[in-house]
Design a protein around this nucleic acid. Structure first.
Length: 478
RNA sequence: CGGGGUGUGGCGCAGCUUGGUAGCGCACGCGCUUUGGGAGCGCGGGGCCGCAGGUUCAAAUCCUGUCACCCCGACCA
């Protein structure tokens, strides 16, 4: 391989530098990479084609894993009778402040208002009850891809919007053990596998404290990622709902012994928030950096300038890469200045660029530009496909390693509330849950710091927050 | 809900104090020259100045009201 050069750093800034103002940087990336716009109603967003392509890739990867775990897709209505929500006390209490309620329809005031789903536990519970008669009907494993609405006071594109896209799984089981096993299976085999393996984001997988858990759940298992500014973002959750919803919606079944039994349910979801997490975990001052396994476009062939058969050569490389399974695009827009196109590809985080002009072609080369390490390397025409394949693998790993390094550097062991608050100013604090306790948790909350999750000393997921020797991860969160 | 602010072409802003009928940068269109890291020059299109009243010969500018949005403090995928 020929010598590798690092690109020069001096350039007019396109984005607000991260160290200067991280939230501003985030907004800048979303605008300049054309990921999304704000919608006309406060707190809503328009996901633009570039952003939506990322979401489609997420959907495709997650959906395949969900199906692999045995759940089947279905679709439930957007509108839910208001009285469904009120059947589960904690659930309604948790959601009522953020509900959008429809009071009029067809020009008339409705007899009973309908709520726009903030999540579908209740409707799905109603139908699970209808469909579950015998133990033979269980487990019932359902999933739906949908939009949900939660009226937000302080919206942020992708991270917290009044309407967002997600997947919500809902299952019913014959026993608590079965429900727990399934909630954990989704947690690890679907979410952790996807977030770590495809998004290249390291996560702490644990359990929420009672204070932080989902309204109506008995156990909430989150996956927490650290953003580049040290704040935490919940990337997904899986819940055991115990028999709370089964009781509220009469999800009962006849056991093999002929007795009437109550089912145990779970729910679990990941949302378009992951796009925000992806941006803030991997993005740098030049824009987005997409992990190759996720990237809608993995390699962009850029024709620097036409002439001397450059277009034909570029097309040949395109065909070769396409045939080898690379998600590749060809940019022949030579009416747009090269610099513009290069910067645009960088903003959008395309992992690899293959630059080709008459000068390269005369030497029998192309220039392979890697977005993630930021290197430019000449590659001979015959060696492009293997070099591309290798770069995609290496850069996927590099992105994960960088994110893990950032998290480790910003995570410190602490022993007091004051130390925990101090740690949360730049990253995460790791503290004994026995020492912290719910009283300490309340004190941290006063200062905007929360317990993101609890894990066992060996990193595994606890069955209860009463277990001895648990570790609490505390941080500021998005 | 409490405190602070802002509403002017698609975006970011100036103009307002000291009324005279709207301007700058970016973006957009056309032409020529360019294209190896957001190209240069020229020409051009686009705005009932948030909305409603009022004062005045005349209002983006002054007065009154109203609406919306943004930022900071209690919830959330």
């Amino acid at each position: 391989m020929a010598a590798t050069s690092t690109k020069s750093a001096k350039r007019a800034p396109i984005l607000t530098p991260q160290v200067e103002d991280f939230p501003r940087w985030y907004q800048d990336v979303i605008a300049k990479a054309e990921l999304a716009d704000n919608g006309p109603v406060r707190g809503t967003m328009v996901i633009r084609p570039t952003g939506y392509a990322i979401w489609e890739r997420m959907v495709s990867e997650v959906d395949a894993r969900i199906k692999g775990a045995g759940a089947k897709n279905a679709y439930f209505p957007l509108f839910i009778p208001e009285n469904y929500l009120t059947r589960e006390a904690e659930h309604v209490e948790g959601f009522s402040p953020e509900l959008a309620v429809v009071t009029h329809g067809g020009g008339k005031k409705l007899e009973e208002p309908v709520v726009v789903r903030p999540t579908s536990e209740t409707v799905i519970g109603e139908f699970m009850a209808k469909w579950t008669q015998s133990y033979r009907d269980l487990p019932l494993l359902l999933n739906q891809w949908a939009n949900v609405v939660r009226w937000e006071m302080r919206p942020r594109v992708f991270l917290r919007t009044s309407e967002f896209l997600w997947q919500e799984g809902h299952t019913a089981h014959v026993s608590e053990a079965d429900a727990r096993a399934y909630a954990r299976k989704i947690l690890h085999e679907v979410y952790q596998d996807f977030i770590v393996g495809v998004l290249a984001i390291p996560v702490i997988v644990g359990r929420k404290t009672v204070r932080e858990r989902f309204a109506g759940a008995t156990h909430t298992y989150p996956l927490e990622g650290m953003m580049r500014d040290g704040k935490a973002l919940q990337m997904g959750t899986s819940h055991e709902l115990g028999q709370n919803f089964a009781k509220a919606f009469d999800i009962n079944y006849l056991s093999e012994h002929g007795s009437q039994e109550r089912a145990w349910t779970t729910s679990w979801g990941v949302s378009s928030r992951m796009i925000g997490g992806l941006i803030m975990t991997h993005g740098d001052d030049n824009g987005l950096r997409l992990p190759p396994k996720l990237a809608p476009v993995q390699a962009l062939i850029t024709v620097v300038k036409d002439g001397d058969g450059v277009l034909d050569a570029a097309k040949k490389i395109y065909d070769e890469l396409l045939a080898s399974g690379v998600r590749v695009e060809l940019d022949t827009r030579t009416d747009i200045p090269f610099g513009r196109r290069a910067v645009d590809a960088e903003l959008k985080g395309i992992p690899l660029r293959i630059e080709l002009g008459p000068r390269d072609l005369a030497e029998g080369n192309v220039v392979l530009v890697r977005r993630i390490p930021g290197t430019k390397t000449p590659v001979t025409l015959g060696a492009i496909e293997p070099q591309v394949a290798q770069a995609l693998v290496e850069d996927q790993q590099r992105l994960y390693d960088e994110a893990l390094e950032n998290r480790q550097r910003r995570t410190v062991d602490v022993h007091t509330i004051d130390e925990a608050v101090e740690a949360a100013a730049q990253g995460w604090g790791r503290m004994s849950w026995t020492d912290l306790g719910t009283a300490g948790e309340a004190k941290l909350a006063e200062q905007g710091v929360s317990v993101r999750c609890l894990t066992r000393a060996d990193g595994s997921v606890p069955d209860s927050e009463e277990e001895p020797d648990l570790i609490a991860y505390v941080a500021r969160a998005y």
